[in-house]
Amino acid sequence: MTIDAIRRCAGEVLEIRLRIAKPLAYRGGQFVTLIRRDDGLARPYSLASPADAEQLELHVRHYPDGAMSGWLASASPGTELELRGPYGECFYVDDDLDRPLLLVGTGTGLAPLYGIVRDALAAGHRGSITLLHGALRSADLYHRDELAALAAGHENLEVVASALEVEAGVDSVDSTPIDALALDRAALSDHDALRVYVCGAPALVSGLRRRLFIAGVPLRAILADAFLPAAGA
């Protein structure tokens, strides 16, 4: 596994592209563990790339003191890494191309959702796909252009950005809290057909899962991935 490219995005997020030596059977939304060769330092990251991509795409929140993210931020293309996985059950399943999909994520919780959405579109998903991406501040919303371009190319995909603090001059960011947006959108869908993906901050994931369930979404229709911060991420 070799680092191909590292791009700094908004919100202290690093988009990391990895070249894989041999094909990896995975689905967008699953996660892998990256392992530093020197000392075995290991951290899990979600796969933002669709299943058939030639490069793996990861979104890494850069913490200045983060052992792995700080190292990745200064790593150069060509750096070799070990990888384990893929793991996890948070991915697109093409059992019903017409079901509505609701994807909700905060911060780099967008990574798995970005992979899932692209897998769904590649599978020819026909039902509505609503992607809600939230951050504390609108300046921390990353990949807005990529998401807008994806939505422009697919009539059934809607992308909504949400931030509690919206900077002056920033348009098309909803200041409604993302969990409220998610509950509103879920209420518009047939609960028995809907499938929901929730990824990101543990408090959002557990709280929203519970509220969606109480609102009538079957428990098994809510797939969740809580990002637990490692000590020294």
Partner: peptide, 14 residues
């Protein structure tokens, strides 16, 4: 039972 659990658990949480 899976459907029953959804109904029952939802009532309990609500």
């Amino acid at each position: 039972m899976d459907a029953a659990v959804d109904l029952f658990y939802r009532k309990v949480l609500s």
